[in-house]
Structure formats: C-alpha cells, structure tokens
Design a protein around this nucleic acid. Structure first.
Lengths: 196, 196
DNA sequence: CTCGGAAGTAAACAACTGTTGACGTACGGG
DNA sequence: CCCGTACGTCAACAGTTGTTTACTTCCGAG
C-alpha cells in the first residue's frame, strides 16, 4: 500500500479540532448533553481528553461550538424559497436523521445543557427558524397567530426527528423521505397554507 | 394552629414511596434522566437518598416505575372516543404542561435513560398510543400508511410539549389551550382526517 | 410495658466526572 | 542540521455520582 492507514496522522490542530466537533455533535445529538462524557467524545475523535479543554475551554464551550456550527449548517441548508418547497425540505431533513447523519443539528435544538448561554443560542436558532418559516407564509411582525403556527410546525418537525433518532418505533423509524413526504405535506399546508 | 405544619410526618412507607415517585417524575421530565441526581429527587421529596435504593432498587428502577405510573395516567386520561375529540384532547394535554404539571408523562415519553428495559416500556406506550389513535381514524392492522400518520401526529404533539417545557420560545411558551386548539385541530384533521 | 421489626438516617465506598499541570514529541523555519 | 514552539499525552486532582452498610428512631402487636 502506498497510502498510510490513516491518511493524516500528522499533527494538525484544525483537523483535530474538527474531529472533536463532529464527534461531539454526534454524541450530544444522540445521547444528550448530560449523558455524554468528554472521554467518550475524545475516544470517538481518536484524540486525548485534555484537548477538549485546550480547544474549547470546557465541555460547555464544546457544546456551544456545536450549536454554533449547527446554526451555520441550518442557515445553509434551509434556504427554502417558496412555501411549496417547505414540506419537501422538512421531510428530507427529518428523514435523513440516521443515514448520513447530516441534519443532526435538528435534534441538537432539543438538547439542553442547562447552561444559560447555550440555551440562548439554541432558542435564537429556533426563533429565527420560526420567523423565516412564518415569513414564507406571509407573516408580518406582530402577527403572533401566524408565528405560533410556524413554531408549532417546527415543534412537529423536531418531534418527528427526535422520535426517529431515539426510538425504534416502527414504521416511523424506517420511514423513507418519500414515506414522510405525504403526511408532512398535509401537516404543513394545513398549518401554514392558504389561511382564511 | 391545630394541625401540624406537615400533616403527615409519621412514618409511612407508601406515602414516602409516592413522594419519591412524584419528585422523580417532575425531575426526569424537566431535566432528563442523566441530568437528574438521586440526591435531587430525595431532597425534593424530603427524604433520605438511601430510600431510593430501598424502594426502587436503583435509579433505573425508579425511572421504570415513573414510566409505569405514567403509562397508567396516560391510559386514564386518553379515553378519547371519537376522532373529533382528539384535537381538543391533545391541545389541552400539550397546553397544560407547565401549569398544574399534570401531563408530565408526555415529556417522559421522550426521555431515554439508555436502559434497555426502560426503553421497551417507553416504546410500548408510544406504540399503543399510536395504534389507539390510528384506530379512531379507521385503522386496521397491516395498514402501515395510516399507522405512520398516527405516529407522526404523536411526534408532533410530543414536540410541542417538549418545546414548551424546555424553552422560553414565545409565543409558543405562553400559548393557552385555546391558542393551541386552532393549529392543532388543523394539524390533526389534515393528517388523520377524512382520507382519500 | 416492651421489644421485634419496620422506617428513616448518616457516613462511607468505589467508580466516574470535568479539568489541569507537567511532561514528551514532532514539525518546520532558521 | 537544529531547536523553539505548537501539538499531543499522561497522570493526577477535587468533586460528584449511585449504592451499600451500620446505625438510630419510631410504631404497634403481644
């Protein structure tokens, strides 16, 4: 073999930082904050525990960093343009939870660490998410009725994602994006669709 | 005052057991399993920590007991008869989360301890809940399509309950039962209502 | 009254948690 | 080639966790 077993075993702060971040996001999303130990994360990332404190100051700091990157992913992957596209987006986000592990940021939104600052980030994401969704449905500031409906929609999506990722409830667990599309579409158009 | 400050300070195993159970349900629901310590529970109940091990063998045992009593509450309070009543039931369950703390069993359904047996109980509750709901919509065994829709409905309800109880997201947080009734009704009738 | 057992308490335990400081070691500019 | 410095490891720390053991206190049957 010409390539070494691990392509990059060389020292690279940015790379190990990233490895820690990804391992942490996976653990925090699937097990929650309190049930995840820093040694679990370090082992998953294949590095030493002490590096968590070095790069992120603390476990809380690492969690905040996870939320921040999750917010970035979220802003990047939810550039939905029209209300019609929303159901498909949500369906594929909720469906993809356990495949490539892509949208773990969804479940992270429901994981609290008890830390005030982390919770602010979390709620901030939820708030902008809701306002963006409401805007697609014709929301203008002050209309609490429609904003509530957007938040209910998000709560529903998060509930689906969480239930799929933390239980073995069938057929929900194994439902594909196509399976979810129909009920999710009905759900969203009913809540946000053409209002009277 | 004729009555003593604490009406029953006398030794009563059944009563302290019950106090532990209620304190545990509140803590587990609001903080999750891992973030809750047995000393927290014991202090809330006003008894000694050792009694948890005595009455429930372990912290896991206490959690299982919480799930069991939650299942009872759930069976008692979800005796919905017709599909038309379902939205109002769900709305008031999801709305009442933080008032009298009545339906904490809802949030418990989303709290995992990592223990296999406890998870079986949890998923069993979800399964029967879904099947009962699906039955109201005309489900017959083998119809995975409708069962999935029932599970999506439950996931949505749990998501609303969890978001309300673990964040300060407004206006969702302060929404009353009446506020929730309209979107929840739309949601349920859209997913479970008269199907084509 | 009394005494056996149940109810409750206090203290200690081993294991585990997050965090830190001192210590190696590889990398790359000189 | 060399060596400072950033990267990584190791081992220990203080505190907390769930659990157990020995002990005290209360109640009520005999």
């Amino acid at each position: 073999m010409t390539s070494s077993p691990t392509p990059t075993k060389r020292r690279d702060a940015a790379r190990t930082r990233q490895a820690l971040l990804e391992a942490a996001r996976a653990r925090f999303a699937s097990d929650g904050y309190a049930a995840t130990t820093v040694r679990d994360i370090a082992d998953d990332a294949g590095v030493n525990v002490a590096l968590i404190s070095r790069y992120f100051s603390s476990k809380e700091g690492l969690f905040e960093a996870c939320l921040t990157t999750a917010a970035d992913d979220f802003h990047r992957s939810t550039g939905a343009t029209t209300l019609n596209e929303v159901p498909e987006r949500i369906a594929e986000q909720a469906a993809g939870i356990d495949s490539d592990g892509v949208p773990r940021y969804l479940v992270l939104l429901l994981r609290s660490s008890g830390d005030a600052r982390a919770d602010e980030i979390r709620i901030g994401m939820l708030r902008t998410f809701a306002e963006r969704l409401a805007a697609l449905a014709g929301w203008e500031e002050g209309d609490d009725r429609l904003l509530l409906r957007a938040q209910v929609t998000i709560a529903a999506a998060l509930g689906i994602a969480l239930l799929r990722s933390t239980t073995t409830l069938e057929p929900l667990r194994s439902a594909t994006k196509e399976d979810l599309l129909s009920p999710v579409t009905d759900l969203i158009t009913a809540i946000l669709g053409n209002r009277a």
